[in-house]
Nucleic acid binder design. Structure first.
Length: 524
DNA sequence: TTCCAGACTTGGAAAAATGTTA
DNA sequence: TAACATTTTTCCAAGTCTGGAA
């Protein structure tokens, strides 16, 4: 790399850290002062005290960047055969790490690779972004194996695993402490197809289904609490209403060394606005610093209550913008309270319940809206499914960044649509002409059939384009993977003769193997 | 009774794989 | 058959929640 225009020699260790930074050249992190500051602090330490490099502003990492790009291009330029050969080798080397023997069963391992050193990429305004995530060695890692299992080897002679445990009360295979957030642990788990994961998945959905039997009472309860003179009761009543209506996350307290995000219990005065006569406007950063923006109609008592909660606290002290709306309890308290309403109930169950029951309802409504629904084309039914999926994703606020190529690819699609419309116009004229010619020219019927084919194609393409535009900021995957009971989907497929592969990809088919034999009449 | 370590689920972005088109 | 678009997989960050120590 260059410093102040002159080449600088770096040790291998220094070069590794410089490369972590260089590779991020095109990312937005480069514009963030926190990122730059944290990186410089880490880099400075690696450079040592008397190093010629004295600051980031005179550093030029582009030689490293160019080199890394050249390597990437080289890899890309390999022939198909060379790439295939490399893949075979890689797969063979990894094969033995991909499975574990658990209680006599072969189970897939999820993440078998230790996270490599890198720069921490926190989301949103994370105070630790840019810090160096150190290399993790066997001496940092605790492994969990059967009492009689041989201790697995590792590639660092002279080192030992930090600890070898035989704990059959947990499902992790290994863990280490994160070097950026030393309070946190990184685990190696079994894959999504494993018995442990499948079992807890089923349990999760069964619990959410059970909420169905309790929800009427819970609603009665919280409505009563809106009128309570006990501020805590009243606040909890409103909070549970939000969970029920909006499927918000719990929102636990966060430290100053984390991004400032909130959930239901940590909503601040600045995050809610009461808009007369009965609207509440939510605007806050939730998990992953994804913005939640939603204006909802609420019952008048809720409106009045929230208005009061944003003004003064339980002791009558005036609140500021950064004070919490619910100042009388936190997420743990709320969960404790929920346990009293239903065994095993916690905040997140509302999200699962809400997502699943919404999917179930929407699909059923679509089926009921048309006679002979099952007779629709598979494509049309799949489009219906995706629409329902989209509503669930919006409910859960699963957003994604607009794909970088969206704008250009949309322009292309529009161009194509216009070309198709032109063609149709030309065909229509040709058809008219043929009709006028009365058998002397081309066969009008042939043109008509061509025309109708084109029209269908156009309709399809228009629908596709509309869907694409519609979904540019919505992520359907998360709800499919984590929130919608797969039995709803599978039963729907069975009822309507939609091949399940149309809706679930290979991974999801595997993940949800436990749900495959559900009967077609299943309702959530 | 509170605190927080520990374990597990959920989340979007990026990379890789696959499909489509020129 | 490369170039581009789309889908799938991987990565690892960021949540939730419980139980047991203090």
């Amino acid at each position: 790399m260059l410093y102040d225009g002159r080449p600088v020699e770096l040790t291998a260790e220094q070069e590794e850290v410089a490369s972590m930074f260089a590779i991020m050249k095109e990312t937005d992190y480069m514009k963030k002062p926190t990122f730059l500051k944290n990186f410089w602090e880490g880099f400075k330490e690696v450079l040592g005290r008397s190093h010629v490099i004295k600051g980031l502003d005179k550093c030029d990492f582009s030689p490293i960047y160019d080199h890394l790009m050249a390597e990437r291009d080289k890899k890309k330029a390999l022939t198909k055969e060379e790439k295939a050969a490399i893949k075979v080798q890689k797969d063979a080397a990894e094969a033995k790490y991909k499975h574990a023997l658990v209680d006599g069963r072969q189970e897939q391992v999820g993440n078998f690779r230790v996270e490599p050193p890198s720069l921490f990429r926190g989301r949103g305004e994370h105070p630790k972004m840019g810090k160096i995530k150190q290399r993790v060695y066997p001496r940092d890692i605790t492994i969990n194996i059967g009492r009689d299992a041989p201790i697995p080897e590792h590639p660092y002679p002279g080192q030992r695993w930090k600890e070898v445990r035989h704990d059959n009360t947990v499902t992790w295979l290994a863990y280490w402490r994160d070097t950026v957030n030393p309070k946190e642990y990184k685990y190696v788990w079994l894959g999504a197809t494993s018995s442990f994961k499948a079992e807890s998945d089923l349990l999760k959905y069964e619990k959410a289904r059970k909420l169905k039997d309790y929800i009427d009472d819970i609603r009665k309860n919280y409505k009563r609490d809106w009128g309570s003179s006990d501020v805590r009761r009243k606040q909890m009543g409103v909070a549970v209403y939000f969970l029920d209506k909006l499927a918000l996350r719990a929102g636990h307290e966060k430290d100053d060394d984390e991004a400032d995000t909130v959930g239901c219990c940590t909503l601040k005065v600045e995050n809610v606005e009461c808009v007369p006569p009965n609207h509440i406007k939510f605007d806050f950063l939730g998990k992953d610093s994804i913005r939640y923006e939603n204006t909802v109609d609420v019952e008048v008592p809720v409106y009045k209550a929230v208005e009061a909660f944003t003004k003064v606290d339980a002791r009558g002290k005036r609140k500021g913008l950064r004070d919490m709306v619910f100042d009388t309890f936190d997420a743990t308290d709320l969960n404790k309270e929920l346990k009293a309403l239903m065994d095993g109930l916690s905040v997140k169950v509302f999200r699962t319940y809400n997502a699943s029951i919404t999917l179930d309802r929407l699909l059923a409504e679509m089926e009921e809206a048309e006679d002979a629904y099952a007779g629709k084309t598979v494509d049309a039914k799949k489009a219906d499914y995706d629409r329902a999926n989209k509503e669930v994703a919006i409910l859960c606020n699963h957003q994604r960044a607009v794909p970088k190529t969206h704008e250009t690819s949309m322009a292309k699609v529009t161009e194509k649509l216009n070309a198709m419309r032109e063609e149709i116009k030309a065909l229509e004229e040709e058809h008219e002409a043929a009709l006028r010619a009365k058998g002397k020219g081309k066969n009008p019927d042939a043109i008509a059939s061509k025309l109708s084919k084109k029209m269908t194609a156009l309709e399809r393409a228009e629908l596709q384009a509309a869907v694409k535009e519609d979904l540019k900021t919505v992520a359907l995957g998360t709800s499919k993977i984590n929130y919608m009971d797969p039995r709803i989907t599978i039963a729907w497929c069975k009822r309507n003769e939609v091949p399940i592969e149309k809706v679930f990809n290979k991974s999801l088919l595997n993940k949800f193997h436990w749900a495959m034999d559900v009967e077609s009449g299943f309702r959530f």
